[in-house]
């Protein structure tokens, strides 16, 4: 029983760190632009299919999918931002409009991925990220899980450093605090926001590279589930704080793995039960400092 508990906790930590990366891009985009990117999961899926394409067409290691995700985010994100976001910001209710608009975008992306790759699941070679099973506290997990957790930590800490140590990061946080005041102080809101949008998409795409390993496979239809789980993690952690998202992911990961070990059929409920509990008890999120007004 103790061994199972330890395994579930270590597994939950690795799984949760990875889901921190899955959700952090959504947090950034919502925090900066106050728009709800319902296509977030589809961008994660695009990252997964990007890695699959690199592996199957060119025989490259799937890790090349991470820089490809960054490149793809620039190519897709920049025009997408200027085509959509400034218009949304001028509307009376950007949050609600973004909800509808990105829902449509999610359907378009899913259809395009299905057309391009077919509707079935795709996997990546099991040993591409190493065939061993390193262990911590005697609990062995596939190397791919460690890679996913490692890259996730690097990406989230990198984002935190960007937000807290760079001029663009300061400007981003200023927009998160108050968009109008940021504009009044001379910050190029659209430029800074577009960079945040691209970073958000890049993080989603990078997370997608590891989806085939942690979720067994990647398929065009899984985006919606990923978006929903990301929202739950984002609420559990706190809006606008990447470290909060990481911790929200940990709570989700450990909770899911414990449930899976002892009450497997109920494991899908974990994110939603946590979400409801957090909204009722601590609406600013576990790691938020003040009450959220969003």
């Amino acid at each position: 029983m103790t061994a199972l508990l330890e395994y579930a906790i270590v597994g939950g930590l690795l799984y949760g760190i990875f889901f921190g990366l899955v959700a952090v891009g959504l947090n950034l985009i919502f925090g900066v632009m106050r728009i709800i990117n319902l296509a977030h999961g589809e961008f994660v899926v695009l990252g997964g299919f990007g890695a699959y394409w690199l592996t199957s067409a060119f025989g490259l290691n799937p890790l090349w999918g991470v820089p490809l995700a960054a490149l793809g985010a620039v190519v897709i994100g920049f025009p997408l931002y200027y085509a959509i976001v400034p218009r949304l910001q001028r509307s009376r209710d950007p949050e609600m409009l973004s909800f509808i608009l990105f829902f449509g975008l999610a359907q378009v992306i899913e259809a395009l991925v299905t057309l391009g790759f077919g509707p079935d699941q795709r996997t990546l070679p099991s040993d591409a990220l190493g065939s061993g099973s390193p262990s911590v506290f005697g609990q062995a997990f596939p190397e791919s899980w460690w890679w996913a957790a490692g890259i996730s930590v690097v990406a989230i800490v990198g984002l935190w450093l960007y937000l807290t140590r760079t001029r663009l990061g300061f400007a981003t946080r200023a927009i998160m605090a108050n968009r109008d005041e940021a504009l009044a102080t001379g910050i190029s809101v659209d430029r800074v926001s577009s960079i945040a949008f691209i970073i958000g998409l890049a993080l989603a795409g990078a997370a997608g590279v590891f989806v085939p390993y942690l979720q067994g496979s990647v398929a065009p239809g899984i985006g919606n589930d990923l978006t929903t789980t990301s929202f739950a993690i984002l609420i559990i952690g706190s809006l606008g704080n990447p470290i909060g998202t990481l911790l929200g992911g940990l709570v989700f990961g450990v909770g899911s793995m414990l449930m899976q070990t002892f009450y497997a059929s109920w494991s899908n409920l974990v994110p939603y039960v946590l979400l409801v509990a957090i909204v009722l008890i601590r609406p600013q999120g576990l790691f938020g400092k003040s009450v959220r007004h969003a």
């Binding site: 199972l4 395994y7 579930a8 597994g11 067994g216 899976q260 497997a264 494991s267």
Partner: peptide, 17 residues
Amino acid sequence: DHAVPTNETNYTVLLHA
């Protein structure tokens, strides 16, 4: 003997158990 959600895709911890 365990039931899992129909859309379950993460079996690593289950397999270990």
